[in-house]
Design a protein around this nucleic acid. Structure first.
Length: 412
DNA sequence: TCTGGGGTCCTAGGACCC
DNA sequence: TCTGGGGTCCTAGGACCC
């Protein structure tokens, strides 16, 4: 048996720890540039503030209802998270820290699990002051389902156990399929089309091959977990990240290449620092730019096995340079980039005219969206990179494969 | 005017090899 | 004009998570 310990409205409750006066007030925490709400307390949810709601749309609502609004403070949240982890480690032999606000616990050998769940809840509340919900079950997916109910149904006191088949039946039958851990909109729609609407429908669906076909291996694993068969064992996560990214949207439109270079250098050194902290060496760097303005993006990769800040910055800047050259080359050669849009002006894809591979993609996309006669398709055109309004999203990534110097020859 | 940032895993398909 | 079979490795892109 496992347990999932999941903090309630984690970022908000971190802020509340230092503000007694906020205890009963609605609180939200905003993303970078105060763009949108990324954490809401129950009181804020009740006001109708959705996850990811743009702040400019809810500002008035917040003012009217005396909502306490915070910009995010990630170093604080990381610190609180570490304290919770330490407390949990004292209570069970093995835990897997799944994210900043969640951990799975191995409950093997324990009795009275529901009671133990309540003890965990009480301990974290007393030691740190953080409210948590606990879900207990034979697999991680079932723990998640239990936790989902623990958060939703307050009468359960924040702890739900799915130890018995009867409880599993009851909870899964009331759970829409897209609420299952690992099933979101994309997979949810596919299941819906197969007539599978609840978690119980999914668990009891007999045609495993069909699930394999529409949801691939992951879908089958999730289905097994719902049946109580462990597909995702508890694992102490490797401290070594496979990719390290630093990215931030600009607060305002950026046209200036120098400004891009400067912020790229800052990101590059952040990434390099983290890379060395985990004693890794990157295989290369890549950068990714996207203009929210017209949806165009550009990326470039550069192979450079290093952990040296200077070299990483240089690599990133070189990528940027290549993007500029690449863009300008496009203009010179007269190649146009077309974006295909539907009648609502949603971009369906970007295509170049003189590339057969892209043309194939275009055809496939046309097939996929099932063009019917009478559909209005807008084709807009743009080319080049320079003078573009780079507003969104400049990412700097160390590559997928990070390793130690000793292992380096293997990945070259 | 204003919609985050950081990750993981899987698959398809291309390039390449014998 | 015809055009094997089997394998590996890599990458882009999709889907999902918090």
């Amino acid at each position: 048996m496992f347990a999932l310990v999941d903090c309630d409205a984690f970022f908000c409750n971190c802020e509340r720890l230092f503000r007694e006066d906020l205890r009963h007030r609605p609180v939200i925490v905003l993303s970078n540039n105060d763009g949108c709400a990324i954490s809401r307390t129950r009181e804020a949810k009740e006001l109708g503030i959705e996850m990811g709601a743009p702040y400019f749309q809810i500002r008035e609502l917040c003012q009217k209802n005396n909502v306490a609004v915070f910009s995010s403070n990630f170093s604080l949240y990381t610190n609180i998270s570490a304290r919770i982890t330490t407390t949990l480690r004292r209570m069970v032999p093995q835990i897997e820290v799944y994210s900043v606000d969640e951990a799975f616990l191995d409950l093997t050998g324990l009795n009275n699990l529901e009671q133990f769940g309540r003890l965990i809840r009480k301990t974290i509340q007393e030691h740190i002051g953080m409210p948590v919900s606990v879900g207990i079950g034979p697999t991680k997916v079932l723990c998640k389902a239990a936790c989902f109910l623990a958060k939703k149904d307050l009468s359960r006191g924040g702890v739900v156990s799915l130890e018995t088949p009867e409880m599993q039946d009851q909870v899964l039958a009331a759970m829409p399929v897209e609420k299952i851990w690992g099933i979101a909109k994309g997979r949810g729609t596919k299941l819906w089309l197969a007539g599978i609407k609840t978690a119980k429908d999914f668990r009891d669906y007999k045609n495993d091959q069909h699930i394999q076909a529409i949801l691939t291996k992951v879908g089958r694993q999730i289905q097994d977990e719902l049946r109580g068969i462990v597909s995702f064992p508890l694992c102490e996560r490797s401290e070594k990240k496979k990719e390290i990214m630093s990215s931030r949207t600009f607060g305002r439109a950026v046209f200036d290449k120098r400004a891009l270079m400067e912020s790229l250098a800052t990101h590059a050194s952040e990434v390099a620092q983290e890379l060395r902290a985990q004693k890794s060496v990157c295989v290369g760097v890549s950068i990714y730019l996207r203009s929210e303005y017209d949806g165009h993006s550009a990326q470039w990769h550069f192979q450079t096995p290093t952990n040296n800040t200077f070299k990483i910055i240089k690599g990133a800047l070189r990528c940027l340079e290549m993007i500029y050259i690449y863009g300008i080359e496009y203009q010179k050669s007269g190649v146009s980039v077309f974006s295909l849009q539907d009648e609502n002006e949603h971009t369906l894809g970007l295509f170049e005219t003189c590339d057969s591979a892209r043309e194939r993609t275009l055809m496939q996309t046309m097939d996929r969206i099932n063009l019917r006669e009478g559909n209005r398709i807008l084709v807009s055109m743009s080319c080049g990179v320079d003078n573009r309004e780079w507003r969104m999203k400049r990412q700097f990534k160390s590559p997928r494969y990070t390793t130690s110097w000793e292992e380096l020859p293997k990945c070259l």
